[in-house]
Amino acid sequence: MSHDILTSTFAGAIRSGTPLLFATLGEILAERSGILNLGVEGMMLIGAFTGFAVSYTTSNLWLAVVAAMGAAAILASLHAFVSITLKVNQVVSGLALVFLGAGLSGFWGQRFVGIQSVSFVNVKIPLLAEIPFVGNILFNRDPLVYVGYVLAPFIWWYLYKTKYGMNLRAVGEAPGAADARGINVSLTRYIYTIMGGALAGLGGAYLSLAYTSMWVENMTAGRGWIAVVLVIFAIWDPLLAMLGAYLFGGISVLQFGLQVTQTPIPPNIMKMFPYLFTVLVMLFTSSEKMKKRFGAPSALGVPYSREEKT
């Protein structure tokens, strides 16, 4: 492969990894609090649509980002309400969220199909962008990529070093113990499930505001589900999530790189790669032993009520 193709493949990995990163970080927050939200795909779609609609009507990209996060957060709060207050099966509720997010975005988004809007442009970071090879890949990107660079370490720091992160981890791991120490389990779960939704919305918005500058129905194409798998891959660690997201980003742009070099693999087969790779990752990370060893939030998916202990 020539130098140019290599550079553009790596740059593509960062770009297509960024929406995965946001969604994965969001899901890590929700799952760390003990709430399994399988609706990432739906929340990303709502985010992508809302972001596009707002950017198209106002031409204000940052307002679009905020709106996308807000819209996805509203969906997430629905999941939070039925999972936390009504204590329903979180799997089913998550699926419902996917239907709702995909449906609403497709429904309201139909009239935006096929329209171009503004999108984020690359901003060179002085000095850093001058680093040979790497600089251009990492530091000549759009602002949301930089948000991702900062957000992952920040969430890591928040989780492991601050009091609130400690509370969050305790709620996901031992809600009874957290409750006894005066931590409001339900409130904590609400907050992080909704924040998780907002981040999924940000991931979706990246697709329609930076990765492309248009809205296509179901444009997430399973990225929300891949994010759920990435959470396991990253063993609930924000820094590993960064690694996983860019790795997966790399795999999904591999096809473009291969196309340019004229490999005989047909495009429809190459489109399978991210999904095949996801299955492969699950094969190696799913065993109970692995989960126990690396500290999955043990109360994940289990509703908490003070009077019912098993």
């Binding site: 070093k161 601050t162 009091k163 609130y164 400690m166 509370n167 981890r169 305790a170 791991e173 031992a174 009874g176 113990a177 957290a178 006894a180 120490r181 005066g182 931590i183 500290g295 043990s298 202990k309």
Partner: peptide, 26 residues
């Protein structure tokens, strides 16, 4: 009878959990 402890936390962290005397950093 079922202890109210967070398994992945250290002893000290378990004591620190939820204490009002700390603000951002325990």
């Amino acid at each position: 009878q079922h202890f109210s402890l967070v398994p992945s936390f250290s002893v000290a962290e378990n004591v620190a959990l939820g204490l009002k005397e700390f603000h951002l950093f325990p």
